[in-house]
Structure formats: structure tokens, C-alpha cells
Design a protein around this nucleic acid. Structure first.
Lengths: 340, 340
DNA sequence: CCGATGAATCAAACCGGTTTAGTAAACGGC
DNA sequence: GCCGTTTACTAAACCGGTTTGATTCATCGG
């Protein structure tokens, strides 16, 4: 077994002719070690192929040297959402530079609390990310109780008690509505996400606000669950009110909506304009290509990881703003028909 | 800080009036502890709210008590693929019952090897999953060098040197082709995945074989990269040869193909039948709903985690077969036109 | 030239478990 | 009634790092 005979700092100490403690100091770049000695130790460590034992370090510094992510969504929804892989990739980018690991937990929704508790009880992680923030989210109190540092992806106006990466979906939705209004649409509807999610709520409010700003009457809003099935159902419901445009809270529902329209003989974008949100991999490759809002979850991941590590180190961490989402205009939006 | 004053087994020992070692024995259900004493110890542990320190245990048993997953795909492809979330959910299901954690690494393709090396060098994990097996996969030798147990998701006929969850895509592809043949199709084409991936190759061979079995001449095959863009490009290329049906190696490409057909005025399924592979969340909600092949990555995840843990425990582990994929017939396939 | 200061180093304790060696008391066989 | 074996338990070593307190030795001010 290759791994059982790994050299330890004792081996390094012996090779360099110093004590264990000195090796530790040298390897950690602490003062109090003569430059020449330090070099001799580093050389010895390199020659022996020494690698720190993460377990031993974790035990003595009383840190897990890892951060956690608990995903309590349905696997089906996760699979259709490009957010997570990109977010995680961004997180990793920061973590791997800092010798930290990401511990992932995917649990059924009912076991969300247990997931966090287990992570904390085992001392598996030093902090966690808080995603999909909900209204009066019980996790906030839970994490405080557990004494676990956290960083959330949150909206600018909703304090979560933790440092947050401030993602503002409003400009994206506003841009979509403005775009539709400029195309002459006046009967614009919205398929919202579940109202228990803050980001779904924010998008919905942004939609309402944007209509008001344009001097238009309130549009029809149907709440769905971010899934394709939900998007399809909501679309059928909305089409009864004959909107000329629908703003969806995510791409998945928008693409499902596209299909429903097509099946009902409603031509997109001729009779109905459609916008999504997320700019998923498929958005540009459906027919017609979807006008949507591009976000940058990779960047959020990096920012969130930076903030979380800083928070774990103990500093007070400021909220981190990120660039606003951008509208990507494709072919699913077109001028409204002259009359209805 | 809630976490700094956690009780240790020394506290439990003191409370129960026994020694540290006895507590360890009692808690681990070892023989040599009187039943009455054991009960007293368990009670004390419960009363104190004792939780094992994962770090301490990991250090003394020289185990990470965690397994790893290195994802070297582009985040974009990951996001569109329902495989990972479902697979990971299945893995978690097994792991969480056994007190193990999942350490995830998402790295750029070029850093794949470094990712495994880092996981092994840090002693972060006791074993890893090997996904997206490639032809002459360099990771097999790498993991052997690192002495890291692994479990792969592999095809029945390609030994990988590790225990494997045997997933056979061939029946799924064969069923799709048979289905098309029964509908009268004779000019069937295939959009394959990158040939360096074993599963792409297997699907491609299964396609060729199924045509031969049906007594049909070889069909056109275009290789793409599993992405929407690649699927669209491949579809344009294939349509020049006027197939009456296209079998795609995954849903993402199939859905992109659907849109290309629609834009070129080729009616699906009237003029062209299309099948996908994966049964993604969107498959049932595109227009027309996609005939595809349903797989069960959640189950694979559970099986793979079981096998990996067994392999880490040291036993020889047999390959695990899983139920074959099933064809899901929807509306993107229809009888071939009488003549071309 | 002596004591004070500080730099370099070492030995040992510590983190919280597991595991081994050793011991005292109970038990059984003959 | 003595000896050998179990049983139940303790003490201590160990895993591989970090951290503290003590010690040595060179340097410097007065």
C-alpha cells in the first residue's frame, strides 16, 4: 500500500537533523527558524516526498479544512439547473488554491436540517454555503445554533445574518420587461417560481415593478415550481388570458412554455414572445432560440468561497456585490402584433 | 463558540466512572465490556450529548472516512446533464447511512490528474468514483499508482481493473433502433458522442449492430460532443443525407436537433423521427415530446457507493449489474413516410 | 566584562480518538 | 485448594501534526 508508508514530519526532522517542532515551524513559514535551517528542512521534505497529513493537521488545529454545501432540492430539478455545476466549479476554483475541500450533501428536502446538523456534528466542515434562501428561512437560526459560519447568495435588501454574495436579479427581469415593452407589448404575463424562495419572490416583484414603471397595468402572474411540468401547466393557464408576451422565472419553464405554445398553435414569437432566465446550455438551441437573462454563477461561486473562507478565519466580512445579470436577446421575442 | 466545548470520550469516561479505553470499546460495540457498564457509558454519552470527533477518528484509524468524485467536464456540459445530480444523490443515500462524506472536485479538464493526486496526497478520501471512462483511460494507471480504491461505471465487456457498476447502454439503443425499424424507417442516422468516451463508443456500436440485426445497410454517423451546439451542427450535416430518423447519443443533442429540424422546415415526427438518450427533465416537455431512453443514475450511484465502501473495507468486490435502460416512447417518433 | 535581550532550537504536551499490553478478580477443572 | 483461563477493565502508546515552555547561545548595552 503506497499510502501507509508516507513520510511524516518526524522523518523530515530526522533527515534534517532537527526536532519535530522546528520542522513544523519551518514548513509553516513561521519566524524563529534560521534561514539556512529552514532551507535544509524544506529540502529534506522535498527529497522525502513529504505531504502534510490533512487528518493530523485537522485534529490539532481543530478545523475540518473543508466547507460544505447541502442541496435539498429534488435531483430532477438539480439536473436541469445549470446553476449548481457552475457555482461549484467557481467554489472549487477558490478552494483548491487554499487547500480546502468541498463536502457535498444531496438530501431529500425533509432531511435538510439533518444534513446541516450532521455536517456540523461530525465536524466535517468549518462553514457552509446557503443557497436557495427562503422566506423566514429556518436554516439561518439553525446555523447560528450550530455556530457554523455561512455565506449566502442573497438579495441586496434581505439581511440574512451572514455575509452574502449580493445577487440582484431585478435588473435582469427589468431589462426583459423593458425589452418587451419597447417591442410594443402591453399584455405581459409572468410565470413565477415558488413564492417561498426569495429569488422567485424578487423576480416576481421586479416584474410587477417593471410593468408599473412602464405605465402598464399589472400582468397576470402564475406561480409554478421551476420545473418543466410546472412551466407547461402555468403556460396553459396563462394563454387563456391571451398575453402577447410571457416572462418566465427560469429557462426550464420557458422552454416547456415554448413547447406548449407550439402545440397549441400559438406561434412564437409571432403571436407570443417569451423570455427565460439563466441562459442554460439549451437556450440558444431551442426553436426559436430563447431570449433570456444571463447570470454568472461561476463568479458567484468564487466570491462566495472567498467570503466563506474569510469568515471562517474570523474576520468580519462585507457583503460582496456581483455584476448584474444581462439580457440576451434572441429570437423568441419580437414586436407585438398591431392589435389583439 | 458552541463547537469548542464539545464533550470528548474523556468526559464520558469520567461521567461513567471508567477509563477512556473502555468508553471507546463500549461505543464501538466491542466485546469485553460488561453489559451493565456498557449501558452506563452509553447513557453518559447521551446525557452529555457526546458526538465522535471525525477528525480524531480519522487520524487514529488512518482513514479519511470520505470518498471523492472528480469532475473534469466543462461546467456547461455538467449543467445540462441530469446524470450527475441523480448519481450524486444516490451516492449520498448510501454514504450518509455509513457516516461517510462525499468530497467533490470540479476541475478544468487539463487538471484532472492533479485533482486525483491532490485528493490522494492530502489523504482526503479513501476511494474515488471513476466516471466517463475513456478509451485507454490514463486514470486507471494513475489510481493504481496512488493506491486509491476506485469503482467505475463501466460497460460489461471492458475491464477497468476496478470493481464496476455494469451499465449496459446497448439494449436501450437497440430498442430505439428496433422501435424505428418497426415504424418502417430504413434510413436511420446516428449522432454519436466523442469517440474517446467508452459510453459514446458503446452506443455507437450498438447502433451499428442494431441496424445490421435489422438487415439494414449501415447508417450515417456523425460524431459530436454531447453539447447542444454539437448536436445542432451534426443534425445539419446529417439532414443533407435525408435520413427518416436520427438516433442521438443524448437528449441534449436530440433537443438541439429537434430545433434545427424545425427551423429547416423538416417536420418532426412527420418527416423525421428523433430519439434521445437519458430522459432528461425536459424530454417530455419539448415539442414534440421526445422519445428517449430512460436510465437510472440514482440507482447507479447507490450501487457504486456500496461497491466502493466494500472495496475500501478490503474485500474483493464483484461487479454490480444494474437493470438495463428502457425505451420511453413519446411523440418524436412516428411511422416513416411511405416513400422518400 | 557582566547581565539582559532575543533568536534558534528542543522536549513535551496536546488534539480526541483507537489499540495494545498488562492487571486484578472471578471462574472452572481436577 | 491450586493453577490456568476468562472476563472486565486500566494505563499508556499511538496516529501526525501544532503549540507552549524551557534551554542554549550569541549579541548588545552600559
Amino acid at each position: 500500500m503506497t499510502r501507509s508508508d508516507r513520510p511524516t514530519i518526524v522523518d523530515v526532522a530526522r533527515a534534517a537533523g532537527v526536532s519535530k517542532g522546528t520542522v513544523s515551524f519551518a514548513l509553516n513559514g513561521r519566524p524563529g527558524v534560521a534561514e539556512e535551517t529552514r532551507q535544509r528542512i524544506l529540502d529534506a521534505a522535498r527529497d522525502l516526498g513529504w505531504t502534510p497529513s490533512h487528518q493530523a493537521r485537522a485534529l490539532s488545529v481543530k478545523r475540518a479544512l473543508a466547507v460544505g454545501l447541502v442541496l435539498a432540492r429534488e435531483p430532477e430539478l438539480l439536473g436541469a439547473d445549470p446553476f449548481f455545476p457552475a457555482f461549484i466549479a467557481g467554489v472549487e476554483r477558490t478552494l483548491s488554491d487554499r487547500g480546502q475541500a468541498l463536502v457535498l450533501q444531496v438530501v431529500p428536502e425533509a432531511e435538510e436540517e439533518a444534513g446541516y446538523r450532521r455536517l456540523a456534528a461530525d465536524g466535517r466542515v468549518d462553514g457552509v454555503f446557503l443557497l436557495d434562501l427562503r422566506v423566514a428561512d429556518p436554516r439561518i437560526a439553525l446555523l447560528e445554533e450550530l455556530g457554523l459560519p455561512a455565506v449566502s447568495i442573497a438579495r441586496p435588501d434581505v439581511p440574512s445574518g451572514f455575509p452574502a454574495v449580493l445577487v440582484d436579479d431585478r435588473p435582469g427581469i427589468a431589462a426583459a420587461v423593458r425589452h418587451l415593452v419597447e417591442l410594443g407589448h402591453r399584455r405581459i404575463a409572468h410565470v413565477a417560481g415558488p413564492s417561498q424562495f426569495l429569488h422567485a419572490q424578487v423576480r416576481r416583484e421586479a416584474f410587477t415593478q417593471a410593468l408599473a414603471d412602464a405605465g402598464l397595468p399589472p400582468g397576470h402572474i402564475v406561480e409554478a415550481d421551476f420545473s418543466a411540468a410546472g412551466g407547461a401547466r402555468a403556460t396553459r393557464e396563462l394563454l387563456a388570458h391571451q398575453p402577447t408576451a410571457i416572462v418566465y422565472a427560469n429557462d426550464l419553464m420557458a422552454i416547456a412554455g415554448l413547447s406548449v405554445a407550439s402545440e397549441l398553435g400559438v406561434v412564437v414569437p409571432g403571436q407570443l414572445s417569451i423570455t427565460g432566465f439563466d441562459n442554460t446550455a439549451l437556450a440558444a438551441y431551442v426553436s426559436p432560440p430563447l431570449t433570456t437573462v444571463r447570470t454568472d454563477p461561476y463568479l458567484w461561486g468564487r466570491a462566495a468561497a472567498d467570503a466563506l473562507l474569510a469568515s471562517i478565519e474570523g474576520g468580519t466580512v462585507d457583503d460582496v456585490p456581483v455584476p448584474p445579470a444581462q439580457l440576451v436577446v434572441r429570437a423568441s421575442t419580437a414586436p407585438a402584433l398591431p392589435a389583439v
